[in-house]
Amino acid sequence: MARLPPLLRGSVVGAPLRYLTDRAVQKRHDTVCPWGTFTVDVVGCLISGLLTGAVVAGASPSRVQLLLGTGLCGALTTYSTFSYETLRPAGDGARFFAVADVVAGVVAGLGAVFVGVTIAEALRA
């Protein structure tokens, strides 16, 4: 793995981690609600916020953000799965559920990024 660029090294870990986390969360919550995707997306946003805050504060080199932010989080979170899991219930007539999923996902994701950046800035201070 040492010869792979940082972006690919991160994604080699992120993709299987996404699948395993999604399956573990969905197994615990037997529902049509995509809690596994919600979980990995929010965790990925939190990690991205932490990394961005650390890089902006000068506490971390940008190559770490490339490895973990773009590589790991890019493979861990997937907009395509989020989109599919939103459109599926909308197509089945559950439009309220689909809209609620979008709103909750976006609000939680942005909130997690904000929390991550805030934590990184507080640790640097």
Rank of each mutant, 00 (worst) to 15 (best):
M1W: 02
A2S: 13
R3G: 11
L7F: 05
L7A: 07
L8F: 11
G10C: 12
S11Q: 04
S11R: 00
V12H: 00
V13E: 02
A15R: 01
A15W: 10
R18P: 07
Y19C: 06
Y19A: 15
L20V: 14
T21H: 06
A24D: 11
V25E: 04
Q26K: 01
K27C: 05
R28W: 09
D30M: 02
D30T: 09
D30G: 04
V32C: 03
V32S: 12
F38W: 15
V40W: 04
V40I: 15
V40H: 04
D41N: 15
V42N: 00
V42C: 01
C45N: 02
I47Y: 05
S48Y: 05
G49S: 10
L50H: 12
L50K: 08
A54S: 15
A54M: 13
A54R: 03
A54V: 12
V55M: 05
S60N: 08
S62Q: 13
V64C: 02
Q65H: 13
L66M: 05
L67E: 08
G69K: 00
G69H: 03
G71L: 01
A75T: 03
T78H: 08
S80A: 10
S80F: 04
S80D: 06
T81R: 08
F82I: 10
S83M: 13
L87P: 02
L87A: 14
P89I: 09
A90S: 15
A90L: 14
A90K: 03
G91I: 06
G91L: 11
G91N: 06
G93L: 14
A98N: 04
A98T: 05
D101Q: 12
D101C: 06
D101K: 07
D101T: 11
V103I: 14
A104M: 11
G105E: 03
G105N: 12
V106R: 01
A108Q: 07
A108R: 04
A108L: 14
G109L: 07
L110Y: 13
V113G: 02
V113E: 03
V113W: 01
F114W: 15
T118I: 06
A120F: 05
E121W: 08
L123Q: 04
L123A: 13
R124P: 03
